[in-house]
Design a protein around this nucleic acid. Structure first.
Lengths: 183, 183
DNA sequence: CTTGTATCGAATTATAAGTTCGATAACTTT
DNA sequence: AAAGTTATCGAACTTATAATTCGATACAAG
């Protein structure tokens, strides 16, 4: 890839995530991103179709870490054993999300958290489909899957807005609140 | 109240809810509301500070029904006994929400459902605070309250978007999924 | 060196929100 | 019924921001 393109792209992403640390997505204008990245207006639009497109790209970047299989260096867990239960998977995702904490707060604050949450849940649905109990007594599987993914996404939002807990703690909260996973 | 004001207000609310049956809140312009209500532009702004203010007013109207104490005429339950458990309260709310189904779909579809959901959860929090179990083993009460309200709001959103279930059925799903209420 | 591609940025277009104000019509009070 | 008050109308205006255009310039790669 052209060095210039890479440079521009990096500048935009850095400017964007920096801005997200101080204000919410909806209150950031394209002009601010352009100024912070120190690039020309048309250059921005040569890289990203719209402002929402930029957010989508950032989300995908975050997700590529969050849903990556390669183990993150957790302090208290050893995941090199090979078989992951749901608790381990959840903890892994939470560790990855913690790394993006500084700008996730800005994405999840206020109105436009919906954009992130929608993408997030799309990805989560794939993962959670297999993990849910096969037999659900009185509840449609459809409803339960929606409930489990939505609750996890909301757990993350709550975590980002509130005092700091460790990923392992959050995992416990979530697994207690949504006890519908197969062993 | 001045007949003219009442007329205008009614026209706006009807135009707005009608539009919400066909498209989502974010895609409705003030101009469309004005045209549909057949009123002057400045008249709209004499009644509502902003477009979001109009949505807020509509939400408050819906909530005043949903959270009303007066029993709705449910088909299968007799609520005249006096003591309501959580299941009864939940079913009652679901019946009231069902009445607003036609335009709730438009409010809850797409991006800006957040505005409704935020108001909704504020009201729900008050109600759910008392109903939750006093002792929660491993989970902060704060997290659990957030989980319970969010899950209820999300249950309603899911309901509005999916095939029709009866309020009693939805209540069962919710109580199964979030079993943290005191008896 | 030459050719293609990226960048710059000022000017422009598009869209929608919200404001202003004078004229007119509908209510209210005396 | 006349006088006074308030609501409505609506066109024109302001403001805000997103997104497009395009010619000039700078950089990269064969």
């Amino acid at each position: 890839m052209d060095r210039r393109q890479a440079k521009t792209r990096k500048a935009v992403m850095e400017a964007f995530t920096n801005l997200l640390e101080h204000k919410s997505y909806g209150n950031i204008t394209v002009q601010e991103i352009i100024d912070a990245a120190d690039i020309g207006r048309s250059t921005f639009y040569a890289h990203f179709e719209t402002k929402d497109d930029l957010l989508r790209v950032l989300c995908e970047e975050i997700f590529s870490h969050v849903f990556s299989e390669k183990p993150h260096k957790e302090k208290t867990h050893d995941f090199s054993s090979g078989t992951y239960g749901m608790a381990e998977k959840v903890t892994h995702m939470l560790y990855q999300l913690d790394d993006s904490r500084s700008y996730l707060r800005g994405i999840l604050a206020g109105e436009s958290s919906d954009i992130f949450m929608r993408y997030f849940r799309e990805h989560l649905t794939e993962i959670f489909e297999d993990a849910l109990q096969k037999k659900t007594k009185k509840i449609p599987r459809d409803y339960l899957l929606n409930h489990a993914t939505q609750s996890f996404a909301e757990t993350v939002r709550w975590w980002m807005a509130h005092g700091k807990y460790k990923p392992e703690e959050l995992c416990t909260f979530y697994m207690e609140a949504v006890p519908f996973f197969a062993d």
